[in-house]
Design a protein around this nucleic acid. Structure first.
Lengths: 345, 345
DNA sequence: ACGGACATCCAAACCGCTTTGGATTTCGTC
DNA sequence: GACGAAATCCAAAGCGGTTTGGATGTCCGT
């Protein structure tokens, strides 16, 4: 494995100029077919591969996409984040881009973006988990760094490119299903509501209730990082209350598992005594499939979202003048074993 | 935000040579304190930041660490992988390194490593999830690319740098605890046993049994991707058999949750009728803490492992001649609610 | 036989930084 | 006051590619 052969040596071996060799390998037209073939063969034979740094310096494009994640990124983001990343990563490598991930202290997030821009570390970035009072897009616009949002930035829907699922609609439909099944006391275990997605979900939930003349009860609504214990503890508390809910709408499979545990610990049966609908991000390590899925759910593949987000971003980078483009995905409402008619008390 | 100022312009503004400015900023000694200060101030004022590509080209170091993950990496790796990455990422950014992640089709894995080496994309890589018949280290040695293994490569412990937890011992201790509690029919729900870590865990399990004169029963031993349904389905099947186990030793929290679900569905009580010990990677979104943790577990923070692995690797890169170094972590055995004495039948 | 249109190929500049190998100045010493 | 060492600073040569602006050669029609 002859290491370290570079363009100059290769061109010497071929009795050609670096220009011609470079052009031959990069598919430029001003090279005869025969020469191109000869070059390709020699390059292959000698195991030539262009040095990325040199190429990047010369072209001015870093051929990389950045993802900045603050150290303390809220826990539940994690598995979802990874799945998104996996999807995006596939797209990147298909297009010859690298993915660079910066794990930074929370108060260095802005710094991280500035560095990416000023040191030309990446040609674009993806914004994860937009909050209600999001500001990162302002910074990126100022830095002139192309970006795509995973989720939506309230108030900046028009001026930014984003990919999001219809959170409001999904939770509205889910709520309606529970209402149709006769449930009237429905609990909402939501994600952190300073995040845009959670707020939308809550709105969907409330809209559905109000459309049937029901008022959302604050005692049945919680918001937190979506861990398993969060689901269990809160469900437990509610189930033990005077007027317990008969159904739970949960923002994540992981918490839903906790809810199911609580239901079991109360001696009740999921899907019979108490119903659950959860959102399912289609995480690969938490399959909710099979003939009849364990959980009735609203499902939307976050991995797919990652793939698409990456495509949007690469498009923006290759055609810098293009207007913002966005993708609005609809979640499927899938019936599983965790829902049933409200028990007639 | 004056963008794009480079070293040349900066040095012109200062009436200094590029050499001096570069040295001043990079802390070389042959610059007077006063000049250094002047340079630093002007650089700050003009928002100068060196172009990474140029610097990398000039120094020959890419200041990046690569992680290649095959597209279909076995599912259960995922959350663990992410947590490891998060830990490693922190170390990287503390040392000014980038983390580049390549998600590749399975049959392009070797290619990915070759590219990293030949195109100088990274100064080193980390090998994830070594298998029993691991070969990646051979390739990397041949490519002369520094690497650290997360886990251990059977037969190459001496010649490679690695960080691993003592899987065998952890599972031996866990098994002994169950035996001490009077359990004799203990099931093992292991990860995929073509992976080194799973094989070691199994060995620990079997050793403990045999030390007490018990023979491992194949009908009580399973091996698979560690999903929730895997835990539930297999536990269910065993619990319904003629001679059910009274305890489960599980390789992952996620599967353990499934086991708990199965126990509940059988009308039994975890920690009373049936005991569970699980391995706990201390994933942030699956906390198993609190006054008394839900699960009795062997715990070892995979995030910490990531931090340490990164440190090992960066050391290797900065001091290329150093001998392989390794870290062997011991898991804690932590008592939770999921274990109790074997029920006297 | 000649001018122009193509087809090929090349020398050299350039990308923005680091680093080598001096050049110049300052300063203490004898 | 001359001299070597130490302190500062600089011009220019890389690093390994891409790209500009020709140069050269070939082929054709007239």
């Amino acid at each position: 494995m002859s290491k370290g052969i570079n363009l100059k040596e290769l061109s010497l071996r071929l009795n050609l100029s670096q220009t011609t060799v470079s052009r031959a390998l990069n598919g430029y037209p001003e090279v005869s077919a025969e020469t191109r073939k000869r070059v390709a063969e020699m390059a292959e034979k000698l195991g030539y591969a262009p040095n990325s740094q040199a190429r990047r310096l010369a072209t001015g494009r870093s051929m990389a996409i950045g993802h900045v994640i603050p150290r303390s990124i809220h826990e539940m983001m994690n598995p979802i984040f990874l799945e998104f990343i996996a999807g995006a990563g596939e797209t990147y490598s298909r297009h010859g881009y690298d993915m660079i991930i910066s794990v930074v202290e929370d108060d260095h997030e802005e710094d991280a973006y500035r560095q990416i821009a000023s040191r030309k570390k990446a040609d674009g970035v993806i914004i994860h988990g937009p909050a209600n009072n999001e500001r990162r897009h302002k910074l990126l616009q100022e830095l002139n760094l192309p970006f795509v949002v995973h989720g939506r930035i309230p108030g900046a829907e028009e001026e930014t490119s984003w990919i999001d699922m219809n959170n409001r609609r999904a939770f509205e439909r889910a709520t309606n299903l529970l209402l149709d099944l006769g449930h009237t006391r429905i609990a909402l275990l939501n994600g952190l509501e300073h995040m845009d997605f959670a707020r939308r979900r809550r709105r969907g939930f409330e809209d559905a209730l109000q459309a049937r003349g029901l008022a959302p009860e604050t005692s049945l609504m919680r918001s937190s990082d979506m861990t398993e214990p969060y689901g269990c503890d809160n469900a437990m508390e509610m189930l033990k209350s005077d007027n317990p809910p008969t159904a739970f709408l949960v923002s994540s499979m992981i918490s839903a598992i906790g809810v199911a545990r609580a239901i079991g610990q109360c001696g009740l049966k999921t899907g019979k005594d108490v119903s659950i609908i959860t959102h399912d991000d289609a995480l690969s390590f938490l399959p909710n499939s099979g003939e009849v899925p364990i959980f009735t759910c609203t499902r939307s593949s976050v991995r797919f979202a990652g793939e698409k987000a990456a495509e949007l971003l690469l498009d923006m980078i290759t055609i810098p003048t293009s207007a913002p483009k966005s993708l609005h995905l609809d979640a499927e409402l899938i019936l599983g074993q965790s829902t049933g008619p409200a028990p007639s008390s």
